[in-house]
């Protein structure tokens, strides 16, 4: 028992590395927000483009979506960070992590938005078009508002799952929570910084997970 306390809850070690963990915490939030904004916006843009049903563009979008759904995010991140420099593209760790997870989120989000758009009754399109609303206006004012509501629960879950991937950025030298914690653990030869890191993630994500549980019941697919 003592051994556990000494190794996982050494208060003195914890106090020493708290500032590091805090700075990692802030960086994780930055990264997460950047990923969510970029991913959700790009996903929506792709779904809207897809609604126009232009063949070659659609194929490209489907390929993008399938690619980023099939590849492990860590693989994508490592390619962005370690492979691109060979052809002179130096993204830096933060940007590599941001783009990698942003693309992954965009791919999942596109699929969800698109399913939402498809699920809106055909009669809605016809009613709107019959009053002279053009295609894009119909999409924007009539179809998307209904589709987006349906996408809230799956999108929340997916967004949370993917933002947890910010921990992967430790692999590409971004000093976020996990990399701060492992560095401190190595220095201190003590596991307490990892405990702090774990607690930091709990503080960050436990409320979101609870929120998603609530949203699930609140916005459950119903019509």
């Amino acid at each position: 028992m003592d051994q556990i306390v000494a190794n996982f809850f050494d208060l003195e070690v914890m106090a020493r590395y708290l500032p590091d963990i805090l700075s990692g915490f802030v960086l994780t939030i930055y990264l997460a927000v950047a990923i969510v904004l970029f991913g959700l916006a790009l996903g929506l843009a792709l779904a809207v483009v897809r609604a126009f049903q232009i063949r070659p563009l659609n194929w490209l979008i489907v390929f993008f979506v399938d690619l980023f759904r099939a590849l492990p995010p860590l693989v994508i991140m490592i390619i962005f960070y370690f492979a691109l420099p060979y052809v002179g593209v130096e993204l830096g760790g933060f940007v590599a992590a941001w783009l990698a997870l942003g693309f992954v989120l965009a791919a999942f989000a596109e699929e969800i938005y698109w399913a939402g758009i498809l699920s809106v009754d055909k009669g809605q399109w016809e009613a709107a078009r019959s009053t002279g609303l053009p295609f894009f206006r119909t999409l924007r004012s009539v179809v998307l508002p209904q589709a987006l509501r349906l996408t809230i629960p799956p999108l929340t879950n997916r967004t949370i799952a993917i933002t947890k991937g910010t921990a992967l950025a430790s692999v590409v030298a971004v000093p976020e929570i996990l990399s701060q914690a492992t560095a401190a653990q190595a220095f201190a030869a003590n596991t307490s910084p990892l405990t702090m890191g774990a607690i930091a993630y709990l503080i960050l994500f436990a409320p979101l997970v609870t929120l998603s549980r609530w949203i699930e019941t609140r916005f459950a697919w119903r019509r």
Binding site: K164, A167, L168, G197, Y201
Partner: peptide
Amino acid sequence: FRSFPPLV
């Protein structure tokens, strides 16, 4: 366990 990134 859903709150922890798997890597952590």
